[in-house]
Nucleic acid binder design. Sequence first.
DNA 1: TAATAAGAGCGAAACGGTTCGCTGTGGGAG
DNA 2: CTCCCACAGCGAACCGTTTCGCTCTTATTA
Lengths: 335, 335
Amino acid sequence: MGGTVRDIQKITGLSLSTISKYLNGGNVLPENREAIGNAIEALHYEVNQVARGLKTKKSNMVGLLIHDLNNYFAGTIISNIEDILRQHGYGMFICDSRGNPKLEKELITFLLGKQVEGIIIFPTGKSAKFLSPALEKEIPVVLVDRIFKQGVFDSVIVDNEKAAREAVEKLIEYGHKEIGIICGDDSSFTAVQRLHGYENALKQSYIEINEAHILKGDLSVEHGYDAMKKLLMLENRPTAVFLSNYEITLGAIIAMNEIGVSFPEELSIIGFDNMILAQIVKPKLWMVSQPMELIAENAAEIMLKRLAEKEKEPKSAMILSTQLMEGESIRRLNG
Amino acid sequence: MGGTVRDIQKITGLSLSTISKYLNGGNVLPENREAIGNAIEALHYEVNQVARGLKTKKSNMVGLLIHDLNNYFAGTIISNIEDILRQHGYGMFICDSRGNPKLEKELITFLLGKQVEGIIIFPTGKSAKFLSPALEKEIPVVLVDRIFKQGVFDSVIVDNEKAAREAVEKLIEYGHKEIGIICGDDSSFTAVQRLHGYENALKQSYIEINEAHILKGDLSVEHGYDAMKKLLMLENRPTAVFLSNYEITLGAIIAMNEIGVSFPEELSIIGFDNMILAQIVKPKLWMVSQPMELIAENAAEIMLKRLAEKEKEPKSAMILSTQLMEGESIRRLNG
DNA sequence: TAATAAGAGCGAAACGGTTCGCTGTGGGAG
DNA sequence: CTCCCACAGCGAACCGTTTCGCTCTTATTA
């Protein structure tokens, strides 16, 4: 069952080159065309993409390397990228680097060994060094959620600084001065940027930054939970908290529910990322919303462009905007 | 850059077979071993898995076909399966059939063309016919969330009937008699099973089934939202509703929030699937919880077993149990 | 010491396709 | 009536590995 091109040859008596022509849409006499078609039918023949790829050096595969597949976004991202790539004949290899730079490096070689034609990556490591094998092979790389060195890689990111700044500005606009933030630590590129946004918003309103109100940790539900509990224990606790990531938002809300702190009455909050969550929770949450579909689509399209192009254009950095979505989770302290 | 095994040959003067031996851990003299190692170093050589695969007929790849990647579970599932497969040297191809049986069939041939060694699939179609190419090629297939014909495929499922029955029994235990269900339609295997569970629970307590309280639709947030609104408009509306899927649960809660119906005071509910959600919402939700990690792990492990085995064992169907998690979203009507 | 076994290496063929350069045919233009 | 070109088809080489069967050397053992 299955057979190869040589089985077709045996049945039809035609040469391999003619059969190959048929398979690739070349000109073949009607009678031969039919003969080959029949043979294919009879054998249930399907072309072996591995063999074809070996010769043509086209695997029609793109690698996708994510630092956490078990993440709220993973599904959305994968789904959107897969959709676009498939429509252009590309398949997708998925790997999860689990936030582990060593594994990340290994997976790059793994993917390259599989002859992927391009790599879309949500990087975890600090350095771009692990990508050098891809550079050497001159394989297009698209970075998502992070920029390394300007001009070396294409990248798609969100303006995290602005996203955080706008959120905190909104809290200030409502009269808040004691504003906390629960965020990721210095190992996370986006967390650092968001923290900057937070600090900038405070600075530009001449509000002093209180280190006790900044809780860094990893980007997990647990951290959100623990940090919120810590914040609520403080003697001069903040009147508002910016929850700078989805998992953190979840954890923080669980902590508030457990302790019985209501929002916005006792504490104002702005969450991150998940619009559905904003509506599920009562009262409705203020939310910073990331255009995840857009991010994924752009990443996929940049990749397709690179795969198709002959002349190499200079690398680009696409910066998308977030949106601050209105809710009822901020209490007005002024006016 | 990159080079092939023949470049190593040129540098070292050794034969291809010796180099191949080296690459595959065979016995090679220390001096030659070093020479090859140096050449590999110098060339940045990496073995071409496509070429190797062509010869060995081992792609070390498993296909994963899901009907909706943009789903709450997708991340969890992919993450767990990927983890296990990778630890055993297997990579993963992911495709999304988008609930479209035609596409599903195409993707199977796509995957087979890529020479995957096995397929794990969350099927959408009614029939297993589209899997026959895989059967012909004698490639192991693991079905998840669904059984087709007993004994033809390995499968991993959850006892949906029991899951739903237990949930509804709980509502009955609390004194409810007018119980609604929002569920998927007949095209969804799991939805049908859950509806059976619902009906069986009512029957065994001699409660009449009220068709107006059964709202079928697709497994989406929108359906949950619309259906809940419809239920709440009924003149004899139910006192409790079983929300038989995650997306439906979300939609239903949004609808309740919008209309301003509180739970458990005005309506009792039991949701499905997402334990985090249960804690985020106040008051805490009763929930039917599926062991998603277990499902994924089992699917991956059955696949690995099939890939390793020589003698074919008979196909197995693994049935896992759900758990009913206590919350505060059911009002006591009796006792 | 001769017989044997084991170790290391080699060359060629194979995996399943595509591609290059060549030949033979038929039809249209000049 | 030539000449030329486009069209079909063919055979062989090739993509980058692995593997089979063979030879040669060295160590082991009776």
